[in-house]
Design a protein around this nucleic acid. Structure first.
Lengths: 239, 239
DNA sequence: TCACCGGCGTAACATATGTGAGTGCAGGAT
DNA sequence: ATCCTGCACTCACATATGTTACGCCGGTGA
C-alpha cells in the first residue's frame, strides 16, 4: 500500500524488509478526503499524521486580511503533516486540492519507531528535512525571481517530483491546480498568473490544457526558472 | 558551554542530566569565524554540523544573476546546519554576519545519538522542524504581506527569538544587520528597505540607532506585521 | 592628517505586479 | 432545456517596489 512512500525512500537509501514491514504496520487506517476539504486545520493537535497516497494537497496559512498563502504542494508519497508528531499543534492547515486517499499513522506508532528503529527514524527525519529544503528554495524564488521565472521554477519542480513517483508520461503531467491556487502558491494575483502563463505558452515553453501540462522545452524552461534539482535531494546515500 | 542550546531545548521539553552530558560530549571543538566569512559553502559535504554559540549567521542562496536571498537568520543556540547530517550535500551557504563562536559536532557523534538516545533525537529533529516552521512563516510573509508589514514581522520574530536566549534588555536588542542584508532577507531592494524603516520610525513603532533596535510600541508593531508567535513553538510539551 | 570605503539616506524616474470590472465558456444542478 | 457557477481570460488603470544616481557621515588604514 505504501508504494509511493517506499519508492521515495528507496531512492535515497536502502530500506530493509523489516523496515518496510514496520512502516506498513504503522498505518492504522485509510482516510478519503474530498476536494477542497481540510485534511488538518490550523490549531489542531492531531494524534496522528497523514501520508498522502493519492491526490494533491496543499499546506496553507490564512492571514487576518483573508489572504491565503500556500507554503507547500504535496503529491503521492508525501507525509503532509509528519511534523505534527513533534510540533504538536498545527500552525497551518492542509487542504485537499483534489480527492485524496490518505494513510493515517498514529503518533504513538511514530514514537515506537523512533524508539526502536534509528535508521528508519533518520529516513523519516530526512523527509521533513527535504520539505525544509523545498521551503528554502521557494523562499529564494519568491524573493529574487520575477513572476515568470518563479512560475517556470514551480513547474520544473512539480514535474520532477511527480516523475519520481511515476506520475508523468513522456513530457506531460496531470496538474489539477486552478490559477487562483497557483497565485496563492506564488504570492501573485490571479490576473498576473494568467499573464505569466500566456507568456510561457507564447514562448513555446509549455502547453497547459485542462489539467494536462506538457513541457515543450525542458532546457529553456529550466533556464528561465533558474532551476537545478539538487535541493530535491534525489541522491542515494547512506544515512 | 552549550547553555544557549540547552536553554532552547529545556523551554520545549525536559532534558535529563545524561542527555545534557551526551550533548556536551558531542562537541568536538570550538571554531571562530570572522564576520563575512562562510561557515559552510554551498556544495560542501560537511562531516560535522555547526552550533552557533555566539554571534549572528545567515543561510543564503546565490542565483545565477548574482542576487542573494537569505533564507534564515541564526542566533545563539541555533544549529545552523544540523540538516547536513542527513541531507549530506549543502544546497546553500551559511555566512557569519558578525564574528561567530561555533561548537562543532561531528556527524558520527550525531549518528551515535540517534542510535542510542531516541528522546534526544526527537528534540534535535524538533529543532529542524522549527526551522521549517519559520520558513513557512517567512514564505507567507513574503507572498502576502506588504514590504512594511514584512519588515515589522521580521523584527517581532527576531526580538522574541533573541529574548528567549537572554539577548534582550528591556525593549531593545542588538541587531547588527545592514540594510542590504535586510533586503536580501526580505527580498527587497536596499532603497526600499530604507523607505520602510523610515516609515516604521515615523509611526513611532521602533527606534534603530547603530545596532540597537528598540521596540517602542509592541502591540502596534505586532499588528502591522500580522505577527503571532505560535509558529516559533515556544510551548513546553512531552515529545 | 588625509583619503577611502561602507553604510545610511534621498530624489526622480521606470516598471512589475495588483485591482476592479467584465466577457465567455463548459459542466453540473434543477 | 435552462440556469448557475466556477474558471480562464482580458482590459484599463493604480500603485508598490526597483533602479540609478548622488550626497553625507564616521571609521579605518596609510
Amino acid at each position: 500500500m505504501l508504494t509511493p512512500l517506499i519508492l521515495r525512500l528507496e531512492q535515497r537509501d536502502r530500506l530493509s524488509d523489516e523496515e518496510k514491514r514496520v512502516l506498513e504496520n504503522a498505518v492504522s487506517r485509510v482516510r478519503v478526503v474530498a476536494a477542497d476539504e481540510d485534511v488538518v486545520r490550523e490549531g489542531d493537535r492531531p494524534a496522528e499524521s497523514c501520508l498522502l497516497l493519492e491526490g494533491f494537497a496543499a499546506r496553507y496559512k490564512i492571514l487576518s486580511n483573508g489572504r491565503r498563502q500556500i507554503t507547500a504542494i504535496h503529491v503521492s508519497g508525501d507525509f503532509v503533516d509528519l511534523h505534527s508528531f513533534l510540533l504538536k499543534t498545527m500552525d497551518h492547515g492542509v487542504v485537499a486540492l483534489t480527492p485524496c486517499r490518505i494513510a493515517v499513522v498514529s503518533h504513538a506508532a511514530l514514537e515506537k519507531i523512533t524508539d526502536e528503529h534509528p535508521h528508519l527514524t533518520r529516513l523519516l527525519w530526512l523527509m521533513t528535512l527535504i520539505d525544509g529544503a523545498i521551503h528554502r528554495e521557494w523562499l529564494t524564488a519568491m524573493g529574487r525571481l520575477s513572476a515568470t521565472a518563479h512560475m517556470a521554477h514551480l513547474i520544473c519542480e512539480l514535474f520532477l517530483r511527480l516523475s519520481v513517483v511515476g506520475r508523468s508520461e513522456e513530457d506531460t503531467i496531470r496538474l489539477p491546480l486552478t490559477q487562483a491556487e497557483l497565485g496563492d502558491t506564488l504570492g501573485l494575483s490571479t490576473v498576473h498568473v494568467n499573464r505569466v502563463l500566456q507568456e510561457l505558452r507564447k514562448d513555446g515553453l509549455i502547453r497547459w490544457q485542462g489539467d494536462a501540462l506538457t513541457i515543450l522545452d525542458w532546457e529553456r524552461l529550466k533556464q528561465v526558472g533558474n532551476f537545478t534539482s539538487t535541493y530535491l535531494n534525489f541522491q542515494y546515500e547512506q544515512r
